[in-house]
Amino acid sequence: MRKESLVFLEKLLAAPSPSGYEQPAQRLFRDYVAPYCQVSSDVLGNVYGFIAGQGKDCPKVMLVGHSDEIGLQVKYIDDKGFLYFAAIGGVDAHLTPGKVVHIHTTDGPLPGVVGKRPIHLMDTKDRETVVKLEAQYIDIGAKDKKEAQKLVRVGDCITFESGFTHLQGDRVASRGFDDKAGSFVVAEVLRLVAAEKKKLPVDLYGVSSVQEEIGLRGGTTSCYTINPDIGICVEVDFATDQPDVERKHNGEVALGKGPILTRGANINHALFELLYATAQKDKIAVQLTANPRATGTDANVMQISRGGVATALVKLPLRYMHTPVEVVSLGDLEQAAKLIVATLKMITDRGTFVPQ
C-alpha cells in the first residue's frame, strides 16, 4: 500500500469515533480528501467530497462508507468513583471485562480498565455466566465520586485501547475497521479519480457517513441530500476462513481474495453486473455473497431513498467483527478502490439501471 495512504488509514483507525462522536475521524477524512475534491459537511456530521464529471447532466453517483465505530458511553458514576456504562452499537459483553479503555473527556482521553471479580472469588456457576454490560464498571483510579466527576461527565464516549498491528503478509489488526475500512476506500477512490487525466462521465460524491451502527442514520440523510441516480456502499463482511464461522449461512469469503460483491433484493442487477464485468475485464479478483433481504448497511437506506436509487454493495472481508482486533487484508482495500474507479468510468446512462 502507498505509504501516505497507510499513514492515513492508521490515523483514521486511531481516532475515536463511536456513533454520534465521529468528528475526530471525520476531521482526518476531510483533511485527507481536501486536495482532491470539493469538501463539505452537514449538520449530522456527514462529510462529502465532490468531483464534477465531464459535461452537463451527468449521472450522479454516491459512494459511501461509514466512519462510526462501536463503543461505550458513561451512564452513571457511583459513590466510590466507578463508572457504569452502556453500549454504543453492538458491543459483545463477553469481551469487555479486563479491557483497557479510554474515556474521551473535554480535557482529552482518560485511561481506565473494565474491572472484574477475580476468578478465585467466583462460584462455579458465575464463572460460566456472562456479566451483563449494565453490571460491568470502569475503574479510573478515582478515590470517590467527587474526584471522578472532576474528570468525567455522564455522556462521555469510551473506546477500547487497540493499536494498529501488522500480522503476517499484508494482514493488519485494529479496532474500527468496521467501517473505517469503507470510509478509507471512499477517500482512496476520490484520490485516484482526481489523479486521472480525463474526467469521469459521472458526478461523483464520496461520503464518509455517521451513525450507521445505531440505525443507518447518516446514510439516510446524506442520500436524501445528494439524491443520486446510482449508489455504491462500501462495507465490511464476515470472513468465513476462520475456524468457527458457518459457511452454509455466511458463504465462502476469505481474506486476501478480493472485495465482495453482494447479490440480492437490496442490489440493482444491472449495477452488480457492471461491477462484475469490470472486475473480469480488469482481472480484479472478487468474491460473491447472497443476501435475499435488506443488508443492514447504508446500501439499504440508499436503495429506498426518495424515488429509489440503483444500489450496489462492495464489501471487504473482515475477521472478528465488533472486537478490538478486527483483521483485514490491505490488498482487499486497494482492490476495492481500483474496482470502483474502473466501474465509474463505465457509467454513462442512468437509464441503464432501470429494470426492463
Rank of each mutant, 00 (worst) to 15 (best):
68 D>Y: 05
293 R>K: 14
299 A>G: 13
286 V>Q: 09
156 D>P: 00
80 K>A: 13
118 P>G: 10
130 V>G: 08
40 S>G: 11
233 C>K: 02
145 K>M: 14
87 A>Q: 04
128 E>T: 14
305 S>C: 15
108 G>N: 10
301 V>P: 00
106 T>F: 09
294 A>P: 01
65 G>L: 07
30 R>M: 12
84 Y>E: 06
327 V>D: 01
191 R>I: 05
255 L>H: 02
306 R>L: 13
326 E>Y: 07
324 P>H: 07
203 D>P: 08
312 A>R: 01
217 R>Q: 11
172 V>C: 05
227 N>C: 12
244 D>S: 15
217 R>P: 01
82 F>L: 13
171 R>I: 04
312 A>N: 07
15 A>P: 05
181 A>D: 02
202 V>L: 08
320 Y>Q: 03
134 E>P: 09
208 S>Q: 09
97 P>Y: 11
237 D>F: 09
321 M>H: 05
49 G>P: 02
119 I>C: 04
60 K>P: 04
275 L>P: 00
24 P>G: 10
145 K>G: 05
25 A>W: 00
25 A>E: 01
188 E>Y: 07
53 G>E: 03
139 D>M: 08
65 G>N: 02
147 E>N: 05
86 A>D: 15
80 K>P: 04
142 A>P: 03
123 D>T: 15
66 H>W: 11
124 T>F: 14
43 V>C: 12
55 G>I: 08
224 Y>W: 15
131 V>P: 03
200 L>T: 05
47 V>T: 06
130 V>N: 11
137 Y>G: 02
216 L>V: 06
7 V>Y: 09
292 P>K: 10
66 H>N: 12
243 P>H: 06
81 G>T: 09
